[in-house]
Each structure stands twice: as C-alpha cells, then as structure tokens.
Design a protein around this nucleic acid. Structure first.
Lengths: 112, 112
DNA sequence: TGACACAATCGTGTATTTACGATAAACGAT
DNA sequence: ATCGTTTATCGTAAATACACGATTGTGTCA
C-alpha cells in the first residue's frame, strides 16, 4: 500500500492477519492438508492433485513458505516440502488466544 | 478471477479461506476486538480508534458484515454494530477442526 | 556431454483489495 | 423546513493477488 496509516495496529493483530492471509486461499489450505496427510513431503504431486498450473502452485508454495508454515528442501531435481510444525502450533495458539479473548470480552450484546 | 479452475476445492476449505480472508487485515481484527470489548455496539467510535479514514472503516465493516461475523443495526442517524456470536463460534469450530485434522494427519516429517 | 524431468522464476493480464476524498442519504434537533 | 451529525456509497488511484504460459536453472541418468 502506498498509504501512510497502516502498520499502526497491535502487533498481535498484524501477525494474526498475516497468518490469516496465508490461509485465505483454498489452494493453500489444500496444500497444507496434503502435506499433513503424506508425511512423505511430496511436491510435484501437489500439482497433480490441485486444479492449478504448476507455476501457480509454485506461487502458493512460496507464500506458505514466506509465512513460515511450510519448509522446503531441495532434494535432487525435485523439491520436498513439509509442514513447519512449530510454526503451525504458533499460529494455532495465536488464533486461539485472540478468538478466546474476543469471547471473554463479550458479554450480552445489546444489538441482538 | 476470470480463470476456470477455481471453485474446485473442498467446501470446508473454501469456507475457511473466506473466514481467513476476513481476518486477513489487522483493522478488521481490531474492529472485532473493539466490538467485543464494548458490549455497547459502537460504530463511529471505531473510526476514532483506528488510524483510518471513515470511508475506509466503513468498507472494513461492510466486509465483516458480508462474511457474517458482525451484525449492523441502524439506530437513528448512527449505525450500531456488534459481533455475531454464533458465526464467530462457527468460525472458531471450523478453524479448530481443520487445524487439528492437520495435526492428527501429521506424524514425523521426513524433511526435518 | 546431452537429454530429460522437475520446479522456480519471469512476464503478462485481469480482478480484487486498500485507501482516500467527495458526495449522498438518513435522521434528530432546532 | 433547515441544519448538523453520522454513515454509506461513489469515484479514483495504487498495490496485491491470482492465474497462466514460457523460460530458466538444477540435477539425474544415459
């Protein structure tokens, strides 16, 4: 964004928003699911499974890697990906914390 | 998108991605937090709190409303928003389910 | 070394998102 | 009826996101 005002939110919110953005495309969730199912960390197989071109899948993998949810290893001519468990748990924790803090803040809402 | 291939993902993933997209901006998380804190469902106050223009906040509110996480009531000249608790719980449940299904699928990853 | 397979990156086009100011609409109060 | 307040919407500009094909790079194997 070219606008000035951003980056002025609570850090936790920024962080959560980043994770959320990473999950904001079904292909990326499908990739995570696939990686979780096969503890063998496949890669090109993902292209076969998803209804997307190879280059597009590669882009999604890159984003998942950028936000740390997956790890990529180069194994010969092929790339091997797997889930970054610690990072996943971090995300899980952050989501749980923030959502449950919403819950505990809420009492009866006067609108409904 | 003008491309054909989308909408071919598991429905749960589509749904989760939608929620995630909704949370993919810190301003929207901040709005949810604010609404949760004040069970009085303010509105213009949000504009004062967030470092964003009124029209921008209105846009974010619209998106939150679109995905069902908040409810808006018109109260005279001002609008009154509050969290849609059921929907929030629905999201919470979906996230928990999908993430924990990742957890249970995973065993030791051969990459790490 | 050359050919093949796989995956990353480049280039490109289009849609969406994010932001803002300006304007319009809705209502209460004077 | 008019004015002021509040909020939604419009118009616009710039940045991102998403998709693809084409190309490049890397490594294996013949």
């Amino acid at each position: 964004m070219s606008y000035a005002k951003r980056n002025e939110f609570e850090e936790r919110f920024e962080k959560m928003a980043e994770f959320a953005k990473c999950l904001s495309h079904p292909a990326r969730i499908a990739i995570l699911k696939t990686l979780a199912e096969r503890n063998t960390c496949i890669c090109g197989e993902i292209v076969d499974i998803l209804p997307l071109a190879q280059s597009t899948v590669s882009q999604h993998l890159k984003e998942l890697k950028k936000c740390g949810l997956i790890i990529g290893e180069i194994d010969g001519p092929r790339s091997c990906y797997c889930i970054n468990v610690e990072r996943l748990r971090e995300m899980e924790k952050l989501f749980r914390e923030i959502i449950s803090s919403l819950d505990s803040d809420m009492s009866a809402c006067s609108c409904t």
